Amino acid sequence: MVAVIVALASHSLSRHHGAPTMLFALLLGIAFHFLYEEGPCAPGIEFASRFLLQLGVALLGLGITISQIQSYGWEVLLIVLGGISVTLFSGPLLARIMKREWRLGILTGGAVAICGASAALAIATVLPKNRYSERNTVFTVISVTTLSTLAMILYPIISDWLVLDDFAAGVFIGATIHDVAQVIGAGYSISDIAGDTAAFVKLLRVTMLVPVIIILSLVFRPNQSDRSDRNTRVPLFIIGFVFFVLLGSTDLIPEIVRISLLELSRWSLVVAISAIGMKTALKSLGAVGGQAIILVCAETVVLAAVVLGFLLLPDFL
């Protein structure tokens, strides 16, 4: 209940000040960390940070259909796959160079490559846990949300400077900016064509969360002696995501229901990030260090460079 109240307050602040709801939810949640430490609210906060997170990610599948993927062609899919793959692999590599733990590299790389805060929350559920896990998740969400806001301002300028047409600009924005709201803001600031394209490409990136989570689940499966325990179980929320993509690709679900469920997804994620904020002590974030910030910035530059590399190839699109 406390996480819901924080989420509602975050939404109100976001509408009033124009900043991302996720960022407000996280910061307000951190301010109420004492509620998690004192005990009575802890079970509810744990529930919100886990179940509502998984529900929100699963329902994101309703935002994209198979026919949409087919309509944009293999070139756009190749750009998305190329950007995600290079950024994901660069995360642990850059983390090693900067002497940060590999978990942080995978977490930040996945968040930058796929869908920002939502990807960070989902990837955190399958990575091996240690005492820095919650801190790293919160740091990643704050970092990618902040960078998304900066990118929303800068990337349309870069698109204009590189003389990208509206479609190419939409692909660039959708394939590089971390969070959906900022993608839409940047895309439609250029044109309707750029906005529509950016929104689709962003949702296409979201679908890549499925194979990434499955692969990470396989790589980091528990090392148990019992054979049944060694069989990796695909997280239920990923199965749910695939189910909702398939369901949304049919005419079985009314549009009003689809929109309502997507809104439920958004609110579930906001409540979940509020709860994760409550589980995080502010002083622990200070221990992350400046190198971690450089890491996220470097991954963001890598993603943008890969996508622009494709777009600037003659006659690629």
Results as ranks from 00 to 15, higher is better:
residue 237 F to W: 08
residue 104 L to C: 04
residue 276 I to N: 10
residue 288 V to I: 15
residue 146 T to D: 01
residue 127 L to R: 03
residue 104 L to R: 09
residue 152 M to C: 10
residue 262 L to P: 03
residue 200 F to I: 15
residue 63 G to L: 01
residue 247 L to S: 03
residue 111 A to G: 12
residue 266 R to S: 14
residue 24 F to R: 10
residue 219 V to T: 10
residue 200 F to C: 04
residue 108 T to R: 05
residue 248 G to W: 08
residue 294 I to P: 01
residue 11 H to A: 07
residue 88 L to Y: 06
residue 172 F to S: 00
residue 183 V to A: 04
residue 76 V to N: 09
residue 78 L to R: 11
residue 35 L to G: 02
residue 221 R to S: 10
residue 149 T to F: 08
residue 223 N to A: 14
residue 276 I to P: 07
residue 143 S to K: 08
residue 203 L to D: 02
residue 147 L to M: 14
residue 69 I to R: 01
residue 71 S to H: 14
residue 233 R to S: 13
residue 65 T to G: 14
residue 210 V to F: 12
residue 129 K to R: 15
residue 35 L to N: 00
residue 235 P to L: 10
residue 135 R to A: 12
residue 224 Q to V: 12
residue 265 S to K: 03
residue 39 G to L: 03
residue 281 A to P: 07
residue 205 R to N: 09
residue 202 K to R: 02
residue 293 I to P: 05
residue 47 F to A: 10
residue 182 Q to E: 13
residue 21 T to R: 11
residue 168 A to G: 00
residue 276 I to Y: 06
residue 99 K to Y: 08
residue 48 A to C: 13
residue 124 A to V: 02
residue 191 S to V: 03
residue 48 A to M: 10
residue 296 V to W: 00
residue 74 W to F: 14
residue 3 A to I: 02
residue 157 I to E: 12
residue 293 I to A: 12
residue 36 Y to V: 04
residue 225 S to R: 15
residue 298 A to E: 10
residue 285 L to T: 09
residue 268 S to F: 04
residue 65 T to Y: 07
residue 127 L to D: 09
residue 259 I to S: 13
residue 58 A to V: 02
residue 80 V to H: 06
residue 36 Y to T: 09
residue 93 L to E: 06
residue 180 V to S: 13
residue 244 F to E: 10
residue 62 L to H: 11
residue 246 L to E: 01
residue 69 I to D: 01
residue 211 P to I: 14
residue 45 I to W: 03
residue 47 F to Q: 00
residue 223 N to W: 09
residue 153 I to W: 12
residue 268 S to M: 05
residue 150 L to V: 14
residue 246 L to S: 06
residue 26 L to P: 10
residue 278 M to Q: 09
residue 306 V to T: 03
residue 255 E to H: 12
residue 73 G to M: 11
residue 106 I to D: 03
residue 136 N to D: 15
residue 211 P to H: 11
residue 106 I to H: 12
residue 244 F to C: 15
residue 255 E to K: 14
residue 163 V to H: 14
residue 59 L to A: 02
residue 30 I to G: 05
residue 136 N to G: 09
residue 27 L to E: 01
residue 21 T to D: 10
residue 25 A to D: 05
residue 143 S to E: 13
residue 301 V to P: 04
residue 182 Q to G: 08
residue 314 P to W: 04
residue 86 V to S: 10
residue 247 L to C: 07
residue 162 L to H: 05
residue 288 V to W: 00
residue 11 H to M: 11
residue 61 G to H: 01
residue 154 L to V: 14
residue 113 A to Y: 11
residue 60 L to V: 00
residue 31 A to I: 13
residue 259 I to L: 13
residue 66 I to T: 13
residue 82 G to R: 02
residue 168 A to R: 10
residue 160 D to V: 11
residue 154 L to Q: 00
residue 193 I to R: 13
residue 204 L to C: 11
residue 24 F to D: 06
residue 133 S to G: 06
residue 121 L to Y: 04
residue 139 F to N: 08
residue 11 H to F: 06
residue 1 M to P: 10
residue 5 I to A: 15
residue 270 V to G: 07
residue 185 G to E: 06
residue 215 I to K: 03
residue 226 D to L: 14
residue 157 I to L: 15
residue 216 L to T: 05
residue 68 Q to K: 13
residue 261 L to K: 01
